[in-house]
Amino acid sequence: MPVSLEDVRHIALLARLGLAPAEEERLRRDLDSILGYVAQLESLDVSGVEPTAHVVDLPTPLREDRATNPERPEEMVENAPDRDRTFLRVPKIIE
């Protein structure tokens, strides 16, 4: 099934990605070509095969629910593009 421009716009919205119109068409063609290639998996019989999510057979490690890192909030927010003291500022959310 070919990828449409509507598909590209839909997934770009899901991915919170803005795209210029020329880029939408370019990416539509790229996705179409890549998905055409990965479609070869259709010919692979995987009946009865368990999926691999992860290669390491480890239980989820647990630890005490206690902070171990030093508190340095100023340093932690220093990279934020817009802030007020240790608060991060974002555009208005509620109209």
């Binding site: 991915a15 990605l17 803005g18 998905l35 974002v90 109209e95």
Partner: peptide
Amino acid sequence: ANLLDMYRETRDAGFGAEVKRRILLGTY
């Protein structure tokens, strides 16, 4: 800009073509 616009404009300006391609492929 509202919050959604801010996300979309930031990610459009900040990511290159291959990163966008893979984000879209993965989201798909």
